[in-house]
């Protein structure tokens, strides 16, 4: 551990921060991000390992999406810097693929699934030139890998949520990147889609690529991912899932509101305030649409 890190008052139970190296596909150096002077990310320091599937987990508002957006220059960074293979993003963007949240676009837009995937090729096509046949073929292959070849010509609003999510992943594949940043690619998808997507991600890893995924389903983290970044404005823990995915770390990440006991206490507090949802367990509430 470098002197800089040692001087920080980090609890001893945390996994040690890895050394920054230019080998790492993504190095985040002491990044702080603030919206209107309210900090969203505090002093985040992280090195993504090569050839790995990394889950970024944390409660709502932990800054998971912000971390991805800040890394890609979509959100301004208050302090710190981000490097890709030791270079700034502007020099590495051809090697980085991005999957935004599904809600970030208007799915009524008049384009087909194939049209959207072709957009992943636009940067390599360049200014003014139209989409070539070779690009279309490459895009088609990406759709195929996500099991969507039959739906290539469909207008995107006529796809299910899971299919739309897969179109976005296919678009990122069409970028032919070495590092992929995905913002909740598994949010709201059905079991079959989840399996298809995970297979694609594993395939990327076996090709030596790194995929960072903002993920919500804690249950599946150990099964799907080999690394995890536990985030709650600060990095709570980072490293191999088996080392960092411990009840203690999770409790710290989620502010201790993880256990049934905490939920019961919350429900009682609500009942005392006369809240109409008094006393009902939260799982029951969540099941009613």
């Amino acid at each position: 551990m470098s002197p800089l890190h040692a001087s920080r008052s980090t609890p001893a139970t945390l996994a040690p921060f890895p050394e920054h190296s230019s080998e790492s596909p993504l190095s985040i150096h002491d990044v702080t991000v603030a919206y209107h002077s309210k900090p969203v990310l505090w002093d985040v320091d992280y090195d993504a390992p090569a050839a790995a599937l990394v889950a970024i987990v944390g409660p709502n508002g932990a800054g998971k999406s912000t971390l991805i957006k800040a890394s890609l220059g979509l959100t301004p960074i208050a302090s710190g810097r981000v490097e890709f293979w030791g270079e700034p993003y502007s020099k590495a963007r051809r090697r980085v693929g991005y999957v935004p949240q599904r809600e970030s676009v208007d799915w009524e837009f008049p384009v087909s699934a194939l049209d959207v995937v072709c957009m992943g090729r636009y940067a390599s096509i360049g200014w003014f030139r139209p989409v070539r046949r070779a690009d279309r073929d490459a895009a088609m292959e990406c759709l195929q890998r996500l099991g969507l070849a039959d739906l290539a010509q469909r207008q995107i609003s006529q796809l299910s949520g899971g299919q739309q999510q897969r179109v976005f992943i296919a678009r990122a594949l069409a970028q032919q990147a070495d590092l992929y940043l995905m913002d909740e690619p598994l949010a709201g998808v059905d079991a079959t889609t989840e399996k298809v997507i995970i297979d694609v991600l594993r395939n990327l890893r076996s090709q030596g690529k790194t995929v960072l995924v903002v993920h919500h389903d804690l249950q599946t983290v150990p099964e799907y991912f080999d690394h995890a970044l536990l985030l709650n404005a600060r990095v709570v823990a980072a490293g191999p899932v088996k080392d960092v995915f411990t009840p203690a770390n999770l409790t710290r990440t989620y502010g201790g509101r993880l256990t049934a006991l905490d939920e019961a206490a919350e429900a009682l507090a609500r009942a005392e305030r006369g809240d109409p949802l008094e006393g009902r367990p939260s799982t029951r509430r969540s099941a009613t649409p």
Partner: peptide, 22 residues
């Protein structure tokens, strides 16, 4: 007509266009 591809990309998904360097 010349900028059709660029207009399409920015209109559909501005953030993705920016990440690509447009």
């Amino acid at each position: 007509t010349l900028l059709h591809k660029e207009f399409r990309l920015v209109t559909f998904d501005g953030a993705f266009a920016q990440v690509q360097g447009w």
